[in-house]
Simulated assay, not measured.
Amino acid sequence: MQANSAKNASPRKRATVRSDPARANRDDDSKTPAATRPAAEGAPLLNRESAVALYMQIADRLRSDIDAGVFAADSKLPAENELTRRFDVSRVTVRQAIAQLLAEGYVVSKQGKGTFVSRQKFLHDLKPMRGFYDALVAQGVEPKTKLLEFKPASAPENVRQAFGSPGDDCFQLKRLYLVDEEPIALVISTLPPEASGLTWEQANRNPIYVLLENLLGLSVTRAEMRIRARSAGTSVGQLLGLPPRAALLVLERESFAGDGALRERTTFYIRPENYEFSLSVQGPLPVGSSIKNVSATAGNGREGKSSAN
């Protein structure tokens, strides 16, 4: 189940870049000294004598334009060749700048379409139990879903035993979540053999927890979740409109009945530029009483300790 979520824009810091004469295009910007020739008309000027790399200056300028509303959310950034002319740099430098903004979540890459300004982020609170669909609805977003698969599937013996049906096939459900017609997550669930009693239409219209509790009568009392990062890969990347090496957030969830029986095992592959997880924890905080002083140990062969606060 998923969490209460609130839709907030990520705080964005504006950066200022000093103007300076620009130089003519060259293949390797890092090997070119500061120039005295003016940049193309109307283009922002870069400080080529600065210790800040040119690609970082370009990223700062584009970031500042996004913060100022020059590029609105979901709008397309200028193409690489246009940015190359605008900043009078090589295509490699422009690609480095775009890669920096991608890593920061300011922009997203849409395969075959270009680079676009990110939307506001969805904040997913992990503390309350709530399904992925319900978490989006709770923050005023009505996602669309597309059921890709719902069929019997083999599962490892330990999974079948955890379901309490070691001799039966499980069911696999694969679903795509979309917001504003753009895919944001791919969900792949392994459901117990009881899911054989569900129709395609039921699987298509209902979230996983509704299928389990309302239609199959299988109660869920707790869930365990793990979050990690991985690259999209070819098959997942194609469904999410991402290149194979693009980064993804991966949420792995297992849900259980009160007696410990497994109810479902689901993996969520989530585009990270619009999604954040949050969790609030309460104290008291256990703090270690001491730490090893590495320098003291190396210096005199004795283990030094200092109080940790």
Rank of each mutant, 00 (worst) to 15 (best):
L123H: 14
I58C: 10
A59W: 03
F163M: 05
G258K: 15
N8P: 10
E157I: 11
Q100W: 07
E194F: 02
L83A: 13
K292H: 09
D60T: 04
R265S: 13
L136M: 13
G258N: 12
K146C: 00
P11R: 05
A43C: 14
N293F: 07
R175V: 04
Q96E: 08
N214V: 06
E181G: 04
V210A: 12
K146D: 11
E201M: 01
I291E: 05
N25E: 06
S19W: 02
T145Q: 15
S75H: 15
M56S: 08
N81E: 12
K292W: 08
E201W: 02
G105F: 00
R37K: 14
G299V: 15
E201H: 09
D67F: 09
R160V: 03
A247N: 07
F277A: 10
V108I: 13
E104T: 12
Y269A: 04
G105N: 00
Y275L: 06
F116E: 09
F163P: 01
A97L: 03
P78Y: 11
V94F: 06
L173W: 03
A162H: 07
E252P: 01
E104Q: 15
S196I: 00
E49A: 11
G241L: 05
A203T: 09
A232I: 01
V220D: 06
A247S: 12
S64V: 03
R245A: 14
A298V: 13
P192C: 10
K292P: 00
P44F: 12
Y275M: 11
L215S: 08
S231F: 02
G283A: 10
D168T: 00
F277K: 07
S5I: 09
K292F: 09
P143H: 02
V159Y: 00
G301K: 12
E142M: 15
A153H: 09
D29E: 03
L186Y: 00
V294Y: 14
R205M: 05
S118D: 11
V107Q: 03
Q120M: 13
V179G: 09
S64W: 01
A53D: 00
L45W: 06
S109G: 08
S154L: 08
A298G: 12
A9K: 15
T267A: 12
K13E: 11
